[in-house]
């Protein structure tokens, strides 16, 4: 590892790249999108139209597992980003990105199986205002996770072929913002939909 590259890394740290700030602004606008859907859910959550309410539908241990899996993936992504920024270790970056990808895919699989179960029991989004809002909120989060996974797959391929360069490192930072943000949104879904629904 030459001094030049290391000095370059330091430079990279000192000046926040504009792309990172730009992406942060996008994340904040995405937070507003989620806030609108959360508000909709909060307004509609008691409108069950004689159907099941939140407390009757969900299995709490299942949701806790989902939550811990997503949290773990947020942590492993942090490790990938750490090895990219401070140790320049391509192998470890790839390994942790892969672990993150698998955890994310597992989370998505669990979410899809929950949705399928709800729909097959006749509790789809047409059932009541509450379920429409539920599917919109959790489904939007799931779509974001799907997009994150596609993006992460592309990133893994890029790191595989190009290694840890200025460009790939910046992409790792940007996807990191997105991935940690999705975990934060899930905390609120976990709290407001599942926990408060079960109280």
């Amino acid at each position: 590892m030459s001094t030049e590259i290391l000095a370059h890394h330091k430079e990279h740290h000192r000046s926040t790249p504009k792309s990172l700030f730009g992406f942060w602004v996008y994340i904040m606008s995405d937070a507003l999108l989620f806030a609108s859907i959360f508000a909709t859910y909060a307004v509609l959550r008691n409108n069950t139209y004689g159907g099941p309410s939140a407390g009757e539908l969900f299995s709490m241990p299942f949701v806790l597992t989902e939550t811990l899996i997503l949290l773990a993936s947020s942590f492993t992504y942090g490790l990938a980003s750490l090895y990219a920024h401070h140790h320049n270790s391509k192998r470890k970056v790839l390994a942790w990105l892969l672990v993150t990808f698998l955890l994310g895919a597992l989370f998505l699989g669990m979410e899809i199986s929950e949705f399928t179960k709800l729909v097959s029991e006749g509790n789809g989004w047409q059932r009541s205002g509450f379920l429409s809002a539920f599917f919109t909120l959790v489904g939007t989060h799931g779509l974001h996770v799907t997009a994150g996974l596609v993006w992460m797959g592309g990133l893994i391929i890029q790191v595989l072929y190009r290694g840890i360069t200025e460009a790939t490192m910046s992409k790792i930072s940007v996807l990191g913002l997105f991935w940690h943000f999705l975990d934060i949104v899930w905390i609120f879904i976990f709290t407001f939909v599942y926990l408060i629904g079960a109280i």
């Binding site: 000095a7 920024h85 401070h86």
Partner: peptide, 12 residues
């Protein structure tokens, strides 16, 4: 420089 990098890495 390497030391600083590792120190920053440990903190992270």
């Amino acid at each position: 420089v390497i030391d600083e990098q590792y120190e920053a890495g440990r903190k992270a």
